[in-house]
Design a protein around this nucleic acid. Structure first.
Length: 991
DNA sequence: ATCCTCCCCTAC
DNA sequence: TAAGGTAGGGGAGGAT
């Protein structure tokens, strides 16, 4: 729920569906042959109650003049037209949208959009206290002696009546009026979450963060394109029929057309829909109210703008080629000027030198008449949806770049329909404009780079084709390097230092020379781009590679518990995003901004982070997770070990990387569970007569194929051991107690004080009540057992020699048996830690093949069924500290066929440990690029299974799983799939 | 030579 | 007052 509030993608599909009908309604109007003008383009009205002109008449006016009529009020309805608004209805309404019907009439008469303010039924004064605009009530004099006179127009005869009506209503109920007066400021008293100690802070912050919206909307639309493509099927594009009337292409032969389409100063355009009177003026979207509110801001008495500026300049000395940063240093910190940032500004404002990201105070110095408008995050989302939905009616070959920008591959569409490409682009842009009321620009070229360049030419509100016949070198030559994608202030500075400032400059030098300035890859890309060459294909379905959540604003703590609470919230947040992305993480990184030693304690920007040092610490997991408890406890531990005073924190972030697909993991689990079940059954069969095996394997197990419990655990492992190596399972089990997993980890201090069986109270506190009791019960049980057992210093040993009943959950929480893994407590920069981590990583695959899965499986099976998944996850983790013995890959040995043969022959169903071993060995082969060997192994194995185990679905599944795992790894590591000629032939377990 | 990790840079 | 997020690419430099 909270998630939806800040990124709004939780209900993606639903939102789309709901919008559809409305959009259609809008565009029907747009293509109406009776259309007389586009006067009200982008403006929507809702009529509340009786009006003059009537609702029907207003509807007609809107339709004929390009506007939209809403039959019920929507959050983004531009205006609500009314004469009087009953108090009950006002309660939850945005008072700033209520205007008189006369506005519509007057706009029509003047043939332009007039300032709606004189038509407001209620006005917001700068105190942001809404008040009735008409007349004076008895209470008003207390609040404000200067009451605006109603700016009635002469023609507005009906307003007198409204005025009277309204006054009467108010006079009759002074209480009600008081309610109205308080509405906008107090309707949400909980929204005063000023700093991160406040429980509502994170939500409030994200709700108001432009950068957060830009990022999450962007990610959301990438996902949206994927969803649209996957839902597409063979539906086709009926809307393409409409394009038949367009100019035909005169192009002979096929040419590649890539379109880049981009809304013009997106936030401003959307904002101007509800401030039409500001069109043509310098406008900026910002949190600051502008005017005197931006030039005389209250500054904290202990904030020292000068000192902070000095330090900032010093720290970013090497960044001063970045104009925005340099300007901030030069003039941004002046006295009492607003330090609120400009998210987007109109072209008129840009002409005055104002740029996105600038401080409002600074911008006002350059352009005192600058108008500021507030954010409209819902509006951005809605317009962005409309943009994407409009384009996707014609093609789904879309690469989403951000919420207001995309690449579209038009080659096929142009070929199929034989339309002139720019005729189509014009048609599309017009449709977008009509539906959204916002202008957009589009560029077309033969690759992404050129399409982008063309868009630059096209802006604002235009389109441009970079012709194929054009001399590309000549065209690119005068282009400044900075305007190429990927060249920012830093790189362009670096290049200017060696005398390169335009594409032409780069065209003249050799690639080698450029490589000496930049890295290899960057040099190559830049070199090509300077010649107008760009070989990147469009990326239609983008996979997430990292997920993060951070807040570097409003972070002010005094106690550790506050930090902890915030980290829990942030941990929950980032986990939600991870789960949404259908991924799991193996690497958890904590990022902390700490006040720089010399920086003033109070920042210049209200609640800003000031000048900071950044600290990163990370934790690598052996198995991917999307469990909030696991992620949060790692984060808490990383924070604890950083030993930072809470009051010095200025920013906190959690980054998750090394992501894995959640589906693959699930599949594995299903398989594993199935194996566990089957082995359980088999165990029973040693005492009980043959019985039905689970549904996947409907055939009774023939008596002779049954194996003794010891053998059945891992035949293949044993076979490989018999072939000349030691069984590593035994080794590991004998020598190494289980590691105390971080989930239950504590910092050093608590470790020292902890007695056997204790574990991190953080973690305990996070568990649901029933499970916490469960854990405690197990803990007691464990303690009892270990006390009675002389050799019981190592519970894992005990576990492995013979499984006690109930099984010792202590494996999971006994610090005495295994010292806390030190590497997890080291800063990520510690070389020792890195060394350890790396060792661990290489060991891991090896462990895959040799861990005692049967024991773990048995153990899990005996746990209460409702036990927390995080515990299961932990318990089923491989034991870590294995003496590192280099294991030759048996699949590379000459006799591998014999081994496989024996394995398949001996086992009715494959044992999990053996399957794991296979996975591990195959993985090594993929990594080692031994494709032909993989091919041979798989072909042989598949034939074996088809001939000897045609009735054993567990074998089939094991094989299929192995194959899909290989393909996944191949894509990951090699970038392509393998083609296996043999497939499992089973009619029962297809798919 | 190739990999991995920790950054920095860039974009919106 | 103010809401300074988030994802991806790639270089540097060390480990193997």
């Amino acid at each position: 729920m909270a998630r939806d509030e800040h990124n709004g993608f939780g209900d993606w599909g639903g939102y789309f569906e709901a919008k559809k009908s409305k959009l259609e309604e809008q565009f029907t109007a747009a293509s109406d042959p009776f259309r007389k003008s586009n006067l009200f383009a982008g403006i929507s009205i809702f009529v509340n109650g009786r009006t003059n002109p009537s609702a029907d008449e207003l509807k007609r006016i809107m339709m004929v003049h390009g506007g939209t009529y809403h039959h019920y009020e929507r959050p983004h309805t531009t205006f609500t037209i009314a004469t009087n608004v009953p108090d009950v209805k006002v309660r939850n309404m945005n008072l700033s949208k209520f205007i008189s019907a006369q506005w519509v009439v007057d706009c029509l008469e003047n043939e332009k959009i007039l300032d709606y303010k004189p038509y407001l039924l209620y006005t917001n004064q700068k105190t942001s206290q809404p008040r009735l605009n008409f007349g004076k009530s008895k209470n008003d004099s207390n609040n404000d002696s200067k009451l605006e006179e109603p700016p009635l127009k002469k023609s507005d005869s009906n307003l007198d009546g409204i005025l009277k009506e309204l006054q009467q209503a108010v006079a009759a109920s002074p209480e009600k009026e008081a309610k109205i007066t308080n509405l906008s400021t107090t309707s949400n008293p909980s929204h005063n979450a000023m700093s991160a100690v406040d429980p509502g802070f994170l939500t409030e912050f994200y709700k108001n963060s432009r950068l957060h919206h830009i990022a999450t909307l962007g990610a959301g639309f990438k996902q949206y394109v994927c969803e649209l493509r996957q839902a597409q099927g063979s539906k086709g594009f009926p809307k393409r029929q409409d394009l038949k009337t367009l100019t035909k292409s005169t192009q002979i032969g096929s040419v590649r057309y890539v379109m880049h389409i981009d809304m013009d100063c997106f936030f401003v355009s959307v904002g101007l829909r509800s401030h039409p009177e500001l069109r043509g003026l310098p406008v900026a979207v910002t949190h600051s109210k502008g005017g005197s509110a931006a030039t005389d801001v209250p500054v904290h008495p202990q904030a020292d703008r000068e000192a902070e500026l000095e330090l900032f300049a010093q720290r970013f000395e090497h960044h001063l080629h970045d104009n925005i940063k340099a300007d901030k240093v030069r003039s941004g910190f002046d006295k009492k000027m607003s330090l609120s940032e400009i998210a987007s500004c109109s072209y008129e404002a840009r002409k005055k030198g104002i740029r996105n990201g600038m401080f409002v105070g600074q911008a006002l110095k350059m352009c005192p008449e600058l108008k500021t408008i507030p954010y409209d995050f819902e509006g951005y989302k809605e317009v962005a949806f409309t943009l994407y939905n409009t384009v996707s009616q014609y093609t789904l070959n879309i690469e989403a770049v951000s919420c207001d920008e995309m690449f579209v591959e038009l080659t096929d569409l142009v070929d199929d329909l034989k339309v002139d490409v720019m005729a189509f682009v014009g048609y599309l842009r017009q449709e977008v404009h009509a539906k959204t009321g916002c202008p957009c620009s589009a560029g077309v070229g033969s690759n992404k780079l050129l399409a982008r360049m063309a868009t630059k030419e096209a802006k604002p509100n235009g389109q441009y084709l970079l012709d194929h016949d054009q001399d590309l070198l000549a065209y690119m030559a005068p282009t400044p390097l900075e305007s190429l994608p990927g060249v920012g202030s830093s790189m362009s500075y670096k290049l200017s230092q060696v005398g390169l400032s335009s594409c032409g400059d780069v065209q003249k030098i050799t690639l080698e020379k450029l490589e000496s300035v930049l890295g290899k890859k960057q040099a190559q890309t830049l070199y090509q781009n300077c010649q107008g060459v760009d070989t990147r294909p469009l990326n239609y379905e983008q996979q997430r590679k990292q997920v993060s959540a951070e807040a570097n604003y409003g972070i002010r703590f005094s106690k550790p518990i506050e930090v902890e609470n915030f980290l829990r919230q942030l941990g929950a947040e980032v986990t939600t995003r991870l789960i949404d992305a259908k991924r799991r993480t193996k690497s958890i990184n904590l990022k902390v901004m700490v006040r720089a030693a010399e920086a003033p304690v109070e920042t210049s920007k209200f609640m800003g982070h000031g000048v900071c040092d950044v600290i990163n610490k990370s934790s690598i997991l052996k198995h991917s997770t999307d469990d909030v408890n696991v992620i949060t406890s790692h984060v808490l531990k990383l924070m604890r070990e950083a030993h930072l005073p809470p009051n010095e924190l200025r920013g906190i972030g959690i980054h998750l990387s090394k992501l894995e697909d959640v589906n693959v993991v699930r599949k594995e689990n299903i398989l594993k569970k199935m194996f566990v079940k089957i082995t359980e059954k088999k165990k029973d069969q040693t005492t009980v007569e043959p019985q039905e095996v689970p549904a996947t394997n409907s055939k009774p197990i023939p008596e002779e194929t049954k194996v003794k419990p010891k053998e059945k655990t891992n035949v293949l492992s044993m076979l490989t051991a018999a072939a000349g190596r030691k069984s590593l399972n035994e080794d590991k089990v004998r020598n190494e107690p289980s590691r105390n997993y971080d989930f239950f980890g504590a910092d050093e201090s608590s470790l020292v004080s902890a007695s056997a069986g204790q574990f991190d109270p953080d973690i305990l506190a996070q568990l649901p009540d029933d499970i916490r009791r469960e854990v405690l019960t197990f803990k007691e049980e464990y303690l009892r057992i270990s006390e009675n057992d002389e050799t019981g210093r190592s519970p894992s040993k005990k576990l492995c020699t013979r499984i006690p009943s109930p099984p010792p959950l202590a494996l999971a929480f006994s610090p005495s048996s295994s010292p806390l893994n030190e590497s997890d407590l080291q800063p990520s920069t510690s070389k020792a830690a890195i060394a350890r981590l790396e060792k661990r990583a290489t060991r891991k695959e090896y462990e895959l093949g040799c861990r005692s899965d049967q024991i773990v499986s048995d153990y899990i099976e005996e746990l209460p069924k409702h036990i927390h998944p995080a515990l299961l996850d932990y318990i089923s983790r491989p034991v870590e500290e294995v003496p590192c013995i280099e294991e030759p890959n048996f699949l590379l040995q000459l006799d591998y066929k014999n081994l496989l043969n024996e394995w398949v022959t001996k086992e009715e169903v494959p044992a999990p440990a053996d399957v794991n071993l296979m996975h591990g060995q195959i993985y090594k082969l993929v990594k080692a690029d031994k494709m032909s060997q993989i091919y041979d192994v798989m072909k042989y194995l598949c034939r074996l299974i088809n001939s000897k185990r045609s009735n054993s679905c567990p074998w089939h599944m094991a094989y299929n799983h192995l194959e899909s795992d290989i393909q996944k790894k191949m894509i990951e590591l090699q970038g392509y799939n393998m083609h296996f000629t043999e497939t499992i032939r089973c009619y029962k377990c297809v798919g």
